[in-house]
Structures are given as C-alpha cells and as structure tokens.
Design a protein around this nucleic acid. Structure first.
Lengths: 342, 342
DNA sequence: AATAATTATGCAACCGGTTGCATAATTATG
DNA sequence: CATAATTATGCAACCGGTTGCATAATTATT
C-alpha cells in the first residue's frame, strides 16, 4: 500500500558526482552530453528505478506535449478510425492524446473543454456534440493562444481550421444514386440541421431532387438523433405513410439498418419497394442483408490530417489560422439495398 | 498565436493584499478561510481569468486524482458502456480518467503502462490485450504501491482484484442452449486460450457437451482473433466440413454475424441447418436477420464497479488486496438464430 | 607549446501551488 | 475587563525538472 520515496535526478546526480543539470540533459539525449556520461546516467537511472516526473517538467517548461480530443462518442468504427489516425501521428511526434466523450451533450462538452484547459493541453481537436450552440465555450482557449481545430462536426470560427468531407456532394450523390435507380419519392433521415454535416447533406439532397425536376417536400425530411431507436421510430412513421416512399437516404448506417429491419419485418421488400442508402460505411453495412449502400468516410485519414495540421502549428511550421478548411474525398458505395436496376 | 503571461495565485494575492497561502486555500474552499475572503478571491480570480495549474499542484501534493484505463479497443458497444460506467463513478468522486488503447498488442500495452506510470496515475484499470504474456510489465506499478485492477480480460496476480462475468457458466449456458435445440455437432469459435475469458468459455463449452453425453472434438474449437475477417475465414472452413456442424457458438457477435452472412450466401439456412449463438449482445445482434442469440454482458455495471472498487481503495476505505475477484451476472438471450424448436 | 575552437558540465534561479507550524484577529467565557 | 478558545491568515520551505549563461575540459590549429 505505501510507496517508497521517489528517485529524482538529484539522487542520480549524487551517485555519479554530476550536477542535476547534466543528468536532466543526459536523460533527454541532449547533444551537449557525451555518450559515455549518457550511458552512465541511463544505467544508474534504470538501476535505481527512476521515473520521469512529468509535472515538474511541464511546470517549468510550460509545455505538456499533450493534445486534447473531444468527440461525441467513441463507439463507432468511424470515430475509432479517426482516433487511431490521430494517435499514430501524435505518437510519431511524441505527443500524448487525452480523449474524452461529450456523449452528444453540449453541457458535458463544455465541462470537458474546461478540464482540457486546466490540464494545459497544447492544442485541442473537437468534433462537436449534437446540440452545441455557439463557440463561446471555446473562447478561453483562443484567448490564451491554444490552437483549436474542428473535424467532421465543425463550428465556424475565424481562427480555427476544419477538417471535413464534402457533405454537400455526398448528400447529392446519395440522392442522385437513388433517383438513378428510379426513386421519385425519397425520404432524408438526418440530424440537427445546426450541425454542418447534416445541413450540408440536406442541401445536397435538395439540390439533387431539384436537378432531377423533383419538388422537395419538407415532410420528407425527418430529423432525429440517428441512433437505433430513431431508426425504429422512423420505420413506424414510414409505415403509416400513404403512398409509401420509394427511397430512403439515412445519414448514419446504424439508424439505417434498424429502420430497414423493421420495414422488412412488415413485409416491405428492399430495394424493390423501398431503396436504402446509409452513411459512414460502418461494418454493419456489409453484414446486413441486403447489404447497405452507403457513403464511405475516410476516418483514419481525417484523424491523421487533423493531428498533422495541429502539430505543424504547434511546432511553428504552419499556422492553423491560414487555412479555413480541408476537405477530404468521400465516395459512394452501391450495394444491394439500393440496386433496383440490373 | 502568442499567449499572455498566466495569472497565478500570487497575482490574486497581490491584488487583494493577501498571502498566496490564503488564496490557494480560498480557491480550494478550505474551512479555515472566511466566506467573505473566499468570495473576494473567487471574484478576482474570475476577473483576471485565472486558471488552476494542475502541474504545480500535482508536483507538490504528489497526487494526481487521475486513474488510467487501458483497453484493447474502444470501438465496441461493450467497451463503450464500460467506459461510460467508469467515467460516471470517477466524475462523482472527482477523479479524471486517462484512456488508452492497446489495439490488442502486448507491446503497445506495455508502452501504455509506462506512459501511465510516468503520468503518475493514482491507479490503473486494465483489460489486457490479446497476446499479453505474464504480469511483469505491471510490476513497476505495484512496487510503487499503485493499485492495479483488471476487468473482463484479466491476469492472475495476488495483489490485484478482477471484475469479470462468469465466463465458464456463460459458455456452458450457450452450449447447453444449442444442445437443447437439438444440436449435436457444435463448433466453438474462440480466442487465445491464455485469456481467461476464452479459456473459461471453452471449459464451459466442454462441460456442457460432456454433461449431454457428447464427446468434445478438439477440431471443433476454432481459435482466432474474432474480428470480421476471422468470421469470414471460419465460414469458409465450415463450408468445407463434412458433415457440416449443426451449431456454432462464437465468442463475439461481430465475428458471429460475419460468419453467418457468408454461410447464408452459400445457401445454408440458419437456424435450420446450423444454429448460431454469439457473445456480448452488441447492437448488431438485434439488427441482423435472423436475429442473433447471444450472451448479455453488463458493461456499464462492470465499469461502475471497477471504478468504485479502485476509488474506495485509493480513499483508504477498502483495500483492493482483500478481494480476489468480483463476478457479475450475465444472461442468455435466445433469438431466432438458434430457435429450432417452436 | 600556445592559442583558438569545440565540447562537456555546472550554477542558480525558476515554474506555481501546498502544507506544517506560527501568529494575528476575533469571539466567547468567567 | 482579562483571559481562554476559536477562527483566520501568513511564513517559508518544498515538490523535481529546466534553461540561460558561465566555466571547465578536451581537441584542433598554427
């Protein structure tokens, strides 16, 4: 239960008749220290069970080499890929990542920002919660010159870069694809239109309809939180429609497959009666039958690029303020859930 | 880009003609400071934009109020639930969580342990990687008296408590269920048998077979990493068997649904030809058709209990060493993928 | 061998809260 | 009103690396 007194660089210095300065530099592989001395230092450090004190270091140097990440949830394969990409880049540049979830709550998100702020992260990467309003909760960071970067779900701010896919184009492509399969009465299931991702896809949806000479019906846009239950609820709502829609574009695969499952239970044939297309290319889209058409989202790259960009800024190589946004490529994957034309 | 000089308690002290000591105590709501003074301190702190310096505090007080968590991956609904449970309890006790992924690699896990160690976590909760061997990488923690707790995928150590479900019983129940549905030739798809979870389920599987008078065939146990690809590979392997098995018990829903999908593509009827049962009750198990029978795993509670236990130890309320393991209830959920008897 | 150039090491102040103990200020008690 | 008891505040050392600048040690140059 009780811990020994910690070994410090002073203990090592004493053992070797060196100054703490030299020990500190030796451990950090400083070029001014001779190889011989470095070896002696490292050997003794290992022998005594020395461990580096991050707090003393951070306190003095005023740098933490830590980057904060705040995301809505981490239990999606997309987010998991983003994090993996970030971690890879951060690791290579010897930065640590502190990750926290807002669980889609603006309130919790604000608390997380504050915690990150107190933990003195060098920079912060955020994908905002479902109901976040305004950017005021981030101002304290910017006032202190802590760089802030948004990815996927972004906010508009003159000092922040955003990393996104072209959601407008993706929404357009998905809708156009359904139209090409003969759909004329298409539902769009989306989220809070205050979020760029959903607003842009909705715009894409509307443009595609318009370009095909179809009048967009506001009642055909369903707004909800896009989780499992929402998918089920949407299915119930669709079953009550008359006439039934002949195509559904859902902004999230999880929601889409749950919706499909209920409809199929009720005797509706997919894609013959209703064609479906989702979003994200989650693993589930490949397993369900019929396999779900979807938009592929480059999560890993998004994470890599976000982390690269932020670290380049921190290292003074390239300011984050010069860029407005970086747009990654996304692509449509057509599978059986939408293929009506053989 | 450039940050102002930070506001410290010294600045506040000067403004109010107080000592830094009083300011420090005032901010911490110390009982010896009068209400009036506390208010003055907090007002000025807010006005100047003071932020607490965690490093200075941690350095001096030698406590971080931070708990480390190392998990194989966070992109499963089970792990996400565990983390949510941990975070809830930790928050309430004003502890922070640092979460990192081993990505199933023992090597990365060891690096993570070291980082946590250097970051001076007050305690550590671990679910070990697929191929972790031995406990030596954790010894440095125990030597310093840093409490270590395992959950789900555990290691045996006299000083560590484990939080688990009864994997033996779960494996027994799953197998027994398939037998009750008329299966006689049952495959068990499992993971590295050095991991308690897989070894225990395998024992349960064997016992259930034995109790039903069925001879366990070693060739009927498939060992792999239980991911999507593994599910596909297992399906190929099963298709080549003669006779085909009539039941499959998979230790993970993701792997199970991928395996099922391939078999169904090849004309095999589920559950008529082969009955399936998975493990974890992932959302996917409810969406796939036929819906996948599975074992429900209390992730959120597991997280809560683990965090509670560790924090009680840290607060000196209940030593972790007195407990060997805590076993949570799990349950079988029978769905269409295994129901052959109407 | 003397001096310059280079390499290696040390000094001492610093980062900003925290804490045991002492002291000042206020209130209660006789 | 004096003294005890209680409450509020301050002193000064401390936690353990870091860094600008000075100095010592070694190697190169003439």
């Amino acid at each position: 239960m009780h811990s020994q007194k910690d070994v410090t660089i002073y203990d090592i210095a004493e053992k070797l008749n060196l100054s703490p300065t030299t020990v500190s530099r030796g451990l950090k592989d400083h070029p001014a220290i001779s190889k011989k001395t470095k070896k002696r230092i490292n050997d003794i450090a290992a022998e005594l069970g020395y461990r580096f004190n991050t707090f003393a270091s951070n306190l003095r140097s005023k740098r933490t080499n830590t980057i904060g990440v705040i995301i809505p949830r981490m239990n999606s394969s997309f987010m998991s890929a983003v994090l993996a990409g970030m971690e890879k880049v951060a690791n290579e540049a010897s930065y640590n990542l502190i990750i926290s979830q807002s669980l889609e709550s603006a309130e919790k998100e604000a608390v997380n920002v504050k915690t990150m702020f107190n933990n003195r992260v060098d920079g912060l990467m955020v994908s905002v919660a479902y109901d976040t309003v305004g950017v005021s909760q981030f101002e304290m960071l910017l006032e202190k010159g802590i760089p802030l970067l948004f990815f996927d779900r972004t906010l508009d701010h003159p000092q922040c870069t955003s990393i996104v896919i072209d959601n407008y184009k993706s929404g357009y492509l998905a809708t156009q694809h359904l139209i090409a399969q003969g759909c004329k009465n298409i539902i769009h299931i989306t989220g809070n239109l205050a979020r760029n991702v959903y607003a842009d896809r909705q715009r894409g949806y509307e443009s595609a309809l318009k370009d095909a000479g179809i009048q967009a019906d506001p009642n055909n846009t369903f707004i909800n939180v896009l989780d499992e239950q929402a998918g089920i609820d949407c299915a119930q709502k669709i079953l009550k429609m008359n006439p039934l829609p002949d195509g559904v574009f859902v902004d999230n695969d999880t929601c889409a497959v749950n919706c499909m499952a209920i409809l199929m239970n009720n005797g509706i044939k997919i894609p013959e009666d209703i064609a479906f297309i989702g979003f994200n290319n989650d693993p589930i889209s490949r397993v369900i039958r019929p396999a779900l058409s979807t938009i592929n989202y480059p999560g890993f790259e998004m994470g890599e690029i976000a982390a690269h960009k932020l670290i380049a800024h921190l290292n003074g190589q390239q300011s984050i303020n010069s860029t407005n946004s970086i747009i990654l490529r996304s692509e449509l994957i057509a599978r059986d859930s939408s293929k009506r034309i053989k």
